[in-house]
Design a protein around this nucleic acid. Structure first.
Lengths: 194, 194
DNA sequence: GTCTATATAGTGATAGAC
DNA sequence: GTCTATCACTATATAGAC
């Protein structure tokens, strides 16, 4: 169980959790370390014992959260044997994750990490994107999906859902995403099927 | 001609242009008013004569840029008579705009305005989105597009392109977007055509 | 309209006791 | 591990001359 799923007594996790919530509601730059201190109900000193600086909080958050999502996507892929079912499962997972933990999805997929982390900026969701790209390429190779250039295939398939998630996180879309999942999947599949 | 298209002698426009460029390269919060001052080659005092504060610079930028894009989309719509051609034209316009003025697209579509503008946050690209939504709804009504819920239709149609633009702006996609336009359009159309 | 110089506040970060 | 108190600095914003 990760820190974002349960309210931990562990103070380090409380700090991370508080930071994540504040980054979501106020944004990284408008969140001061004092804000995090207050929300996590710990002292400033403790925060700087666990983390070198504010940036390292964000970096830790990014690594732990994206690793968690990565593992879940891997599981979804392992549970199915073709690209159709795999991508369907990933889309459903995204939809549910957005409803359950919008702050996680927001931070991993829609935060401008290059602005936050000047040093060694992780390519945005690099590992996750690589996994999905690979899955889609397999689908093209085995004839499930129509031939497309690598750059166009990913966005064509999952771009619609990503956009919907973005709008949902911004409060533009009111419906819970699982409600719209079937429709979005239909569009996505039509877009790329062979 | 807007301030972002030509290097103006007008100092107010120079300030806006400098701010836009810096917001793109460093991000809004990492850009200080002194940075803008330096880049625009004016004094601090002058900036605060034209704009109440840094936030108002961003707000002005948002209004003027999105108005400009809005008008261009309106033109594209007016030049065609059906949803197919209209949306095709909008996609082509987006692709070209991203190549010509990435800073404009980045600021209008992918900046987290709620974090920047705490007071009266404009619904992200509200007017533009309304126009596109309306165009798509027409297409559904007249049978060009298959029936879909309003929330799903927009993302299904243009979400792929929006995602591709996002990746391009982040430096993940290397190809100029007009190169990928045909492929992206094919996917988009398959996703929503009746 | 345009400039320089300065006040003010708040933030990231540290020191050091317990 | 955990706390309080405090520092040093930067950035926003203003005052006021030209």
């Amino acid at each position: 169980m990760s820190f974002y799923e349960t309210s931990s007594k562990n103070k380090r996790d409380r700090i991370l959790h508080a930071a994540l919530m504040l980054f979501r509601s106020k944004g990284y730059f408008k969140t001061s370390v004092h804000d995090i201190r207050e929300q996590a109900d710990v002292s400033i000193g403790l925060i700087y014992r666990y983390f070198k600086n504010k940036e390292e909080i964000a970096q830790t958050l990014y690594q732990e959260l994206s690793e968690d999502v990565f593992v879940n996507i891997e599981k979804n892929i392992a549970q199915h044997t073709n690209t159709h079912d795999r991508c369907r499962a990933i889309m459903a997972y995204y939809a549910q994750l957005t409803e359950d933990f919008p702050e996680v999805v927001d931070f991993i997929f829609f935060t401008r990490h290059k602005e936050i982390l000047p040093t060694a900026p992780p390519v945005c969701t690099g590992k996750i994107q690589g996994l999905i790209r690979q899955t889609i390429q397999e689908g093209i190779k085995n004839g499930e999906l129509r031939p497309m250039s690598p750059a166009a295939a990913g966005p064509s398939f999952l771009g619609g859902m990503m956009r919907l998630i973005h709008l949902r996180l911004m409060g533009v879309v009111q419906e819970p995403l699982p409600t719209l999942l079937e429709e979005m999947w239909e569009s996505a599949w039509r877009a790329v099927k062979a």
